[in-house]
């Protein structure tokens, strides 16, 4: 069987509506990367284990490699290029940089998506660490990522809402 059947899919990507023709078997990650030019959409394992593909779908972190693009019809998708709150995005970038939370950078977008979720929901630190455990990093040893998120949570608490 060939991919003769194409579906029209429309979703909001980083605030802009995208309309695409996709074969059902194409993953959201594949489509975001190859069709939409989102370089943060990356496959690390294709099994949901590593989280390199994590994107925000309707406000929650989702494994992009386990979602067919056709399923995202009507969804509000955010990638690490443009999180919903620009101030929060800037703060996350700043904290990641400051705490050396990046080495090769391949897993970084996925961790940024998790960080945004943690901040938006003001998770307590132990839950934040559990949440960050969803994704793999092989370079940094994680503790810089945890430091960055810890600082962001503290800033958020100080400022009442949003860093």
């Amino acid at each position: 069987m060939e991919d003769t059947e194409l579906h029209t899919v429309s979703f909001k990507l980083n605030g802009h509506v995208q309309v695409l023709q996709v074969a059902p078997r194409r993953s959201l990650t594949h489509v975001l990367d190859q069709e939409c030019g989102m370089k943060s959409a990356r496959v690390g394992c294709g099994q949901g284990d590593c989280g390199s593909c994590t994107v925000s779908v309707d406000g929650v972190p989702i494994r992009g490699c386990l979602l067919f693009a056709v399923q995202a019809d009507g969804a509000d998708i955010r990638t690490a290029e443009a999180l919903a709150d620009p101030a929060m995005l800037a703060a996350i970038r700043k904290a990641f940089k400051k705490h050396r939370a990046i080495q090769c950078g391949y897993c970084t977008p996925g961790f940024m998506i998790l960080a945004e979720y943690i901040l938006r929901n003001a998770l307590p630190l132990d839950q934040a660490v559990q949440t960050l455990s969803a994704n793999l990093c092989r370079c940094t040893g994680y503790s810089p990522i945890v430091s960055a998120v810890t600082e962001l949570l503290a800033l958020r608490a100080e400022n009442g809402c949003g860093p």
């Binding site: 990356r42 970038r93 940089k97």
Partner: peptide, 15 residues
Amino acid sequence: EDDDLLRANTRFVGS
């Protein structure tokens, strides 16, 4: 390196 990596302004071979 970080600004490019944080902005996904990257040249990983997959993309």
